[in-house]
Write a protein that binds this DNA or RNA. Structure first.
Lengths: 343, 343
DNA sequence: TGCCCAGATGATAGCGCTCCCACCTGCTGG
DNA sequence: CCAGCAGGTGGGAGCGCTATCATCTGGGCA
């Protein structure tokens, strides 16, 4: 039993073990497993057989240390249970897996610059080859500039540093679809419950809504601000329900829309007979509440795939600037909207 | 410019750089940074100053390769957008962070044994020190037995291998709370829309429901099976709504409950006047739909923390068997349940 | 006074892999 | 007929860190 030919039990087999069994050098094993072209088919087969026989598994840490490449991308998201986060992450995971990359997620409890920096640093420490920032960049610090300069990064809410690439859903279009739908139903004007202003999606939706009203020469009512939670929708709904003029509301997310509708019910305003409501996201439950919710569907899965694709291209050639990509939302008409009743 | 004293620009500073600047050995730097006790306070301060000055960041890959320890735990979850997944992951992330561990997530698209194996192998490749399986183990393969033997593992739905530790919410209690609540309201019996039978939570809830009915000498109606989706709730609701006897339904998840209520509405059965409905989970929207949903709240965050705590203990001493831990759900009474009307 | 031990530090040897370069075939073409 | 070249392979040198052992100091105690 020479320790150079037999490893102690308990230690997983390494590349040299595979090499010995296959009767080649460790170097050739490495090449065969990496899919390098200059390896004879016969040799590769021998290597694969040895791998199979020994139950060899690559040692990722060693690979990363040696090559600097990790085959991993990082995603920064907000630590919440909102549907949008889950759906998007889901989309990214799928797409990354297809591209042969692993996904490492770093969540941040707040949108503070320092919290986002910390999340990005955590990912950097894991040697991710690229990052997707799925949180709004409120303030771009020197540190963030530096990080996005060093690691190819894609932001998905439209905010960006000088070095990031951008992927976004056309949120302005989402708002315009919703607003125009309500005007088409004959409503005089449309009220709006927005998301937090720090979020670019929220302000894009707000702008789109305002643009349509102005283009049509309608009165632009004051905007109410929520925080994406059902509870904030409820609070704003209690306000809207007390204003007799309100007949149509565009709410910046389905979860808030549920809260708005709930509040209107409690105040005796019927949906859609008295007030029409449109949400955004098309969460799974939108169809199953009463009344079922008219909403603007967000192509989250598609967006995840787009972000990953964009990131891959950016990683392949960090020099070339890619043009911002964007996908289009679509209106889903259900029962929470109805024609305005004429006075 | 000797290359031994000055590194090429562009390469991040390493421990030897820090050591040189601090005027100590690399070894001492390692100890100081690891919080090793046998380091003079003065020395530690010098090291920290040098770290600060150079912007040194540890190289994780090297640390893992060298020590075998990664300070990371892995979580296997199903690739869905269900609330429960997000909420639980969230809880685990928090708890792990507090324990000084990073979390790596591997999602699986299906519950096939091979898919779960693949997810676990991915985590093993990342040198996780422990795993939390947040998916039901339908069939425990040799491979899974082996993996759970090699890496400390906690399962959180009650299924287990010979080597795993178990953490669970008492799902039977959840069902009993819901069922008894409905009986207390005067209903003759309670119908049940369950989750997929492969999920232990689903069958535990089913058992709890059945146990209460039998203990009270009530008729046990046939069970309807859903797949956790709102749509499956809707389908089953269309069936239940056509059965005149039905006055109370216990649905195994809130999302399905939304579907059930929706279907009952469409069939002209009012909730709660004609039929009372109870869900499980207490999702954020449960309170804001109409009628607001009576449900059994699951302590997801607590469960995540419990799972992490359990795992830490298991990792510290893989030999000692820990007794299964469990947390208790609680009933939240809202508007979807009402006293039975007497014939 | 001398010895031992504990605390503080340094030197050296890998961890398992990939990179770079050298090597060896067997073939083409002047 | 042999230089020259390309495809296939092997041999070393690290990647940046930690484990292990060795070294060196300064007490406390007989």
């Amino acid at each position: 039993m020479d320790k150079h030919t037999t490893r102690e039990a308990g230690r997983p087999p390494g590349m040299t073990d595979v090499a010995r069994v296959a009767g080649v050098s460790a170097q050739t094993v490495s090449r065969a497993l990496a899919g390098h072209p200059n390896v004879q088919e016969k040799t590769r087969a021998k290597v694969l057989a040895a791998v199979e026989q020994l139950g060899y598994r690559k040692n990722n840490a060693a690979r990363v240390l040696s090559s600097g490449r990790s085959r991993t991308i990082g995603v920064v998201t907000l630590q919440t249970s909102f549907y949008s986060r889950t759906a998007l992450t889901h989309g990214i995971e799928r797409a990354a897996q297809e591209a042969g990359y692993a996904v490492s997620t770093a969540t941040t409890a707040s949108l503070d610059t320092s919290a986002i920096e910390a999340a990005m640093l955590r990912l950097a420490d894991q040697h991710v080859e690229g990052m997707i920032l799925a949180v709004p960049l409120i303030h771009v610090s020197r540190q963030i500039e530096q990080l996005t300069g060093a690691v190819p990064t894609v932001t998905i809410d439209g905010s960006r540093t000088s070095a990031t690439e951008v992927v976004a859903v056309d949120q302005s279009l989402a708002a315009r679809l919703a607003t125009r739908h309500l005007l088409d139903l004959g409503h005089e004007t449309v009220w709006h419950v927005s998301g937090p202003r720090a979020w670019l999606d929220a302000s894009s939706r707000s702008q789109g809504w305002r643009a349509v009203l102005e283009a049509e020469g309608r009165v632009v009512p004051p905007e109410l601000e929520g925080d994406w939670s059902p509870e904030s929708g409820y609070r704003n709904g209690l306000i809207l329900g007390r204003i007799p003029d309100v007949t149509a509301v565009f709410v910046a997310s389905d979860e808030m829309a549920f809260g708005v509708i709930r509040a209107l019910h409690e105040l005796g305003r019927r949906v859609p007979e008295d007030i029409s409501v449109v949400g955004v996201d098309d969460i799974a439950l939108a169809e199953y509440c009463s009344p079922s919710l008219t909403t603007v569907a967000q192509p989250f899965a598609e967006m995840g795939a787009l972000a990953v694709g964009h990131l891959m291209r950016h990683m392949a050639d960090p020099g070339a600037a890619l043009e911002p990509a964007s996908v289009e939302p679509s209106l889903v008409v259900r029962a929470s909207t109805a024609p305005a009743r004429r006075a």
